[in-house]
Simulated scan of single mutants.
Amino acid sequence: MVAASLRRMNTRLVNVVIDAARPRVLADFWAALLGWRVALEEADEVDVRAPEADGWDLDLVFVPVPEAKEVKNRIHLDLASTTLAHQEELVSRALELGGSRVDLGQGAVPWVVLADPEGNEFCVLEPRDRYAQAGAVAAIVVDAHDPERLAAFWARLTGRPVGAREGDVLVGLRAPSGRGPWLEFLRNDDVKRVKNRVHLDVAPPSGADHAAAVSEVVAAGAAPADLGGPDLPWRVLMDPEGNEFCVLTPR
């Protein structure tokens, strides 16, 4: 097991990346739903950015891929609400923008499970005190066979301390600032079968040695992933449960 007390690495979380058949269409959906803006549009990516007051210091990045979505995503977003009326309003807005309701066998729960126009699952949560300072996105949720072990690995990568535990079911990492989304690891025994359509990017700070940062991440338990070409400036790796992520160049 990776010990949570081990020295953290010199990297931080910078992006949540979503594969898309139509990146601009999907970016517009999420920007409208969250009240954010499209900040960048290029041939190989479209970025959606939160206002500074929201506390989210990452980008939502949509990249074009030819493959269709096959299975439930192993990483999804939970949206925060402040009141039950606000929760209902978020659900209605998502449906009006082209989202749909999803039945994953969740039964009678206080949150609402939806999908965006390309089938990416997300939840609209009922009001919860834990997410009062989170902003529009309450949490980035990662399915995990061993939430404690995976959370320890990502705590080292991101510098986020453990801020919540729910038995052996969930471990949540809180941003050091106390604002923005939680990074949560939720027990799920499903077997990973295909490349994740949603992944995380981390990056070392400006001026750091990229190769050294990659080596440190690998030494902490990551493994190389056979994705992309050799000329990419970033490195694609997998965490201890096979979830792909990228170590970007220093920034």
Rank of each mutant, 00 (worst) to 15 (best):
E41R: 08
A68R: 12
L104V: 15
G242S: 04
K195H: 12
G119H: 02
R12Y: 09
V142W: 00
P51L: 05
A68I: 00
V91R: 09
S92K: 11
A50Q: 12
F122G: 00
A27M: 02
G135M: 07
E42D: 06
V217D: 08
E70L: 10
P224Y: 04
P147C: 10
H86Q: 13
L232H: 04
A208H: 11
V214F: 02
T82S: 13
D143H: 13
G229N: 08
L173Q: 03
P224N: 14
D146Y: 07
R37G: 08
P181Q: 04
R74D: 12
D168Y: 03
S81E: 03
D168F: 11
V169N: 01
P161D: 07
A3V: 12
L104Q: 10
D129P: 05
N196E: 14
E52K: 05
D47E: 06
N188V: 10
A27V: 08
L26R: 09
L90T: 08
R24V: 13
V214N: 02
V171P: 08
P161W: 05
H145P: 04
R187G: 11
K72S: 11
K72F: 14
D44P: 07
E148C: 11
D231T: 12
G55N: 01
L170W: 10
G242F: 05
D143M: 03
V124N: 00
G55L: 01
V113M: 13
R22A: 10
R193C: 01
V48Q: 01
A3H: 12
K69V: 13
L90M: 14
G55E: 09
G221D: 01
H76D: 12
D209G: 03
S206H: 04
Y131C: 04
L58H: 02
V198W: 00
E166A: 15
F29V: 07
R165Y: 06
R37N: 15
A225G: 09
F122A: 05
L60Q: 06
D146H: 14
R197E: 02
F185G: 07
F29W: 06
A108P: 00
N196K: 00
D28T: 12
R193I: 11
R93Y: 01
L95Q: 05
